[in-house]
Amino acid sequence: MIKLLGAVLILFAGTLIGFQQAARFAARPRQLRQLAHALQRLETEIGYGHTPLPEALGRIATVVPSPIADLFLLAAEGVAHDDGLSFRESWEQAMKQGWEATAMRAGEQAVMLRLGSALGISDKDDQLKHLKLALLQLKAEEDAAKEDQGRYEKMWKSLGVLIAVLVVILMV
């Protein structure tokens, strides 16, 4: 009886781990797409609205879902507090703190960090160029992420169950 219960537990845990890994692969392209949407929105705010950066980031945070929105909120908060951070420092801090909660990887983080070092310090045309470049790079990452998703998502889902089954068989 106890053996059966243990086997069920192992199967359950294995399946869960597999699904969680698969979910990470599914989440990455989705979050990359949301990030791209956010940057497009920023493009509009800068290009047409001339909205000041902290306010623009706050607005973006209201239209994209949570782990992505938090990145922008953190960056806006960093300059709102009076601790002498420059925008680049605040942005870097936000990208490092908030990144943990997302399914995104180092490649896209590097894109965002590069963007942060250019945001706010030049005229409109230059800002839009930097945003376009970042969007292109994110697009490339998104394509790669989709490929990974197709390849690994199903694999992880079945792999979790199969490994759990293997462990159960070995134990019996």
Partner: peptide, 17 residues
């Protein structure tokens, strides 16, 4: 001076053309 410029432009030089 760069930090001062950021602060007086509200981190948004593009909005100050």
């Amino acid at each position: 001076c760069r930090k001062l410029l950021e602060r007086i432009t509200n981190y948004s030089l593009y909005a100050m053309e």
